[in-house]
Structure formats: C-alpha cells, structure tokens
Computed example of a mutant assay.
Amino acid sequence: MDTRVAVISIIVEQEDAIEELNAMLHEARQYIVGRMGIPYRPKGISIISIAIDAPQNTISALSGKIGRLKGVSAKTAYSNVITPAEEGAEQ
C-alpha cells in the first residue's frame, strides 16, 4: 500500500489523556518518523507534533482516535509526498 508523509499536531488539555495517547502512539511506532513534545506549563497544556510516513487510512485512523480522546485536539496536514508500495517495501 502506498504511504504518505504527514504531520499530526496534537494539543493535550487534560493530563489524564496522556497515558492513552502515548499507548496509541506506541502502537503506531513503526510509522512514526519523529516526535516533538512541548510542555507549555503557563497554559497547562502539552503541544505534540508527530511526523509520520504511513498509508493514508492508517494516518486518518490514528488522527481520528487521538481526536476522540477527552481533552485532546488533533489536526493532520498531509504532504504531496507519496511513496508507491513497491518503493516503500525497500525502506
């Protein structure tokens, strides 16, 4: 299946959602290229950015699951970089 590069931006407003969020990201670890987390203590939130290279349905499913967590917002930005399945198998 073709893969696509995307960034999932996450804002965590409720600390009790972090454990479940981390479990979801751990399940998707094979697709995650990089992760940056910034605790914004004055506002009481965490800002997380996930760079991912995965099939589009996998990215959409992960973003949707994350967005359904209570106290968590997620948005996805897709690149136009798509790797055909044959090339992706070589990585």
Rank of each mutant, 00 (worst) to 15 (best):
G67W: 14
K43S: 06
S79T: 14
S63C: 12
L25Y: 00
S63E: 09
G71S: 01
T83C: 12
I66C: 03
A54H: 12
G44Y: 00
E27C: 07
P84Q: 14
A6Y: 09
T3H: 07
T83R: 15
P84W: 08
G88F: 06
E20F: 03
I32L: 00
S60F: 00
R29P: 04
T76S: 13
Y78I: 02
K43L: 11
K65E: 15
E20L: 04
N57S: 08
Y78R: 03
G67P: 15
M36V: 12
Y40R: 04
A51K: 11
V12Y: 13
Q14V: 05
I48L: 15
S49V: 14
E87N: 07
Y31L: 02
M1H: 15
T83I: 15
A54F: 09
I45G: 02
R35L: 00
D16L: 07
G71Y: 05
E86C: 00
I38T: 07
I32N: 00
P84K: 14
P39C: 07
Q14P: 04
P84S: 08
A6L: 12
R4G: 03
V33I: 15
A77H: 05
D2E: 15
M24C: 00
E90T: 13
A74Y: 09
S73H: 13
A23Q: 14
V7I: 14
M24R: 00
I82N: 05
I52P: 01
R29E: 09
E15N: 11
G34Q: 03
A74H: 09
K70M: 10
A61Y: 10
N57I: 07
D16P: 10
L62M: 06
A23G: 06
Y40W: 13
G37Q: 00
N57R: 08
I8T: 01
I59Y: 02
N80D: 14
P42F: 08
M24A: 00
Y31Q: 03
S79C: 04
N80H: 09
I18C: 00
A54P: 10
I66P: 03
R29Q: 05
E20I: 09
